[in-house]
């Protein structure tokens, strides 16, 4: 029982990081129709920038903020330069997936080539441990959960109550119609990349805050779980992604304790297959029809 509760605690931490990443990933896809498989690499890049700051003596929290900014700037630039270039060239949905793969290959291996095949480690002051109701979590882990909750709530408020949120939802369902209703679609898209990029950066840095060390492929390894969470929740559905993250995060950590830690992703995948069999559109998502890519 204690083991189960303990695993559940780890699951919550993983789910928190996963939620930030999965929501961002699904937001990009749901609104711009670009399946950004370079997402994991941007996470790694932000974690690496965070590492450089951290190694120079800055606290991890500063690293987190800078990581978020870096993620936002880089994602928006990536969309405005490379992705937009291909969309203007008439590359379709399917070709864009290949474009993002190529970008991922270039980013990951450039980092690998320049920084080397090392394990990079964050210097984090020792954390105090909290116990309640069988859960054992460090202050750092609680703070990560807190960051995720704040991020999710902010995003929720924004999607629900602001003009931008409404514009985003309108652009997602029909870019042409949104444009004709006076919504500046390209500005909305830029903001989507900035917001999701910031979340991506936060996810990258918190991921490493939790695991302490990382390599050039940490982000792309994590992408598997992100994709699983996003599909489980329903691709393109931010609230679905949160739910998916919770399910996938907890399932994989519980499996890690009871079965084999190195096989935890396998359980995430098994969950994905089960969901695909029962409900191919995911828990919250609706069946979507293919549309054009927007940048």
């Amino acid at each position: 029982m204690d083991r189960l509760v303990g695993a559940f605690g780890f699951g919550l931490v993983t789910a928190s990081i996963l939620a930030i990443a999965a929501v961002a990933f699904t937001l990009q896809f749901g609104i711009t129709n670009i399946l950004n498989l370079a997402f994991g690499e941007i996470m790694t890049l932000c974690a690496y920038i965070g590492y450089l700051l951290n190694a120079a003596g800055a606290s991890v929290w500063l690293a987190l903020v800078v990581g978020a900014v870096a993620g936002a700037v880089f994602s928006a630039l990536l969309n405005r330069t490379i992705y937009a270039l291909f969309v203007r060239r008439g590359t379709a949905l399917w070709g864009m997936v290949i474009v993002t793969i190529a970008v991922a290959l270039i980013m990951q291996n450039t980092l690998l080539g320049l920084a080397g095949p090392h394990n990079f480690t964050y210097t984090i002051p020792p954390a105090t441990t909290f116990r309640f109701a069988g859960l054992i979590l460090t202050s750092l882990q609680l703070e990560i959960i807190g960051v995720a909750i704040v991020a999710m709530l902010t995003l929720h408020m924004m999607l629900r109550y602001t003009r931008l949120g409404k514009a985003m939802r309108a652009t997602a369902s029909d870019p042409a119609l949104a444009q004709s209703c006076g919504i500046n679609a390209s500005r909305v898209i830029d903001l989507v990349w900035i917001i999701s990029g910031a979340l991506c950066g936060i996810a990258g840095v918190t991921l490493v805050m939790n695991t302490v060390s990382f390599t050039a492929s940490t982000g792309s390894d994590f992408l598997v779980v992100i994709i699983a969470a996003a599909i489980v929740g329903g691709v393109g559905a931010p609230y679905g992604a949160m739910l998916g993250a919770l399910l996938v995060g907890v399932t994989s950590e519980v499996a890690a304790v009871y079965v084999n830690a190195s096989l935890k992703n396998v359980f995430a995948f098994a969950l994905l297959l089960v969901v695909l069999l029962i409900r191919p559109q995911g828990f919250i998502g609706r069946a979507r029809v293919a549309k054009g890519v927007v940048t």
């Binding site: 490379i82 270039l85 291909f86 060239r89 590359t91 070709g95 290949i98 474009v99 793969i101 190529a102 970008v103 991922a104 290959l105 270039i106 990951q108 291996n109 450039t110 690998l112 080539g113 080397g116 095949p117």
Partner: peptide
């Protein structure tokens, strides 16, 4: 370059080649 540099660059070349051809 460092250890594994050439191999990493091989992947970069593949990525760039894909982009160049798709474009």
């Amino acid at each position: 370059g460092g250890p594994g540099f050439v191999d990493a660059m091989r992947w970069v070349v593949i990525g760039v080649a894909i982009l160049v051809f798709l474009y």
